[in-house]
Simulated scan of single mutants.
Amino acid sequence: MNETEQHPLLRERFYRRERRSVPGAREFARAAVVEWGLHARVDDVLLCVSELATNALVHGVPPGRGYRLCLWLYGGGILRVEVHDSGGGLPRAREPDGESGRGLLLVAALADMWGVGEREPGKTVWCEFAVADVTS
């Protein structure tokens, strides 16, 4: 078992409840994914980071709070993206209505897995990507 299988690589950052945090989250994720050599899935990962961060801002972050973006790279070739917020409710992929509602449908289409976990307060929305195991 290599060291990353025992201790995954982690990059994390906290963002305030402001629109400019979404481009910041995307650039933070791009830097980590490129540093880890995961070029093949970078566009899918960045789109999912944008959607999850936007959903956190619009639906999950009360005024005066923020959200945390975590990127985990596990040995064996799994990249996990997590967005932690303190808002209530459990998001779900649904048919879009007008201009909204497509975010989680995109995440479901691009990521290999996605889901929602409870935390106190709030929730964690996550998605995972199979990537080339560059840690071996």
Results as ranks from 00 to 15, higher is better:
51 E>N: 04
47 L>A: 10
74 Y>G: 00
89 G>M: 08
108 A>W: 00
28 F>E: 11
18 E>M: 06
10 L>C: 07
90 L>W: 07
115 G>K: 08
118 E>G: 06
35 E>D: 15
89 G>D: 11
100 S>E: 14
43 D>V: 05
73 L>Q: 10
113 M>V: 03
32 A>N: 04
29 A>K: 00
23 P>C: 00
29 A>V: 11
20 R>D: 06
97 D>K: 15
133 D>P: 05
107 V>C: 01
33 V>P: 03
79 L>E: 06
17 R>H: 11
133 D>F: 02
45 V>K: 01
50 S>F: 01
22 V>N: 02
25 A>S: 13
115 G>M: 11
39 H>W: 09
134 V>E: 09
118 E>H: 08
16 R>C: 00
71 L>W: 12
126 W>P: 01
64 G>T: 14
23 P>H: 02
54 T>A: 11
24 G>I: 04
69 L>G: 05
111 A>M: 01
116 V>Y: 13
103 G>I: 02
81 V>N: 04
101 G>N: 14
88 G>I: 02
93 A>T: 12
96 P>W: 07
55 N>Q: 11
22 V>C: 01
37 G>P: 03
112 D>N: 09
113 M>N: 12
90 L>P: 00
67 Y>C: 08
5 E>P: 06
136 S>K: 10
130 A>Q: 08
29 A>E: 04
19 R>A: 10
119 R>I: 03
97 D>L: 14
98 G>S: 10
104 L>Y: 07
1 M>E: 14
50 S>R: 04
38 L>K: 10
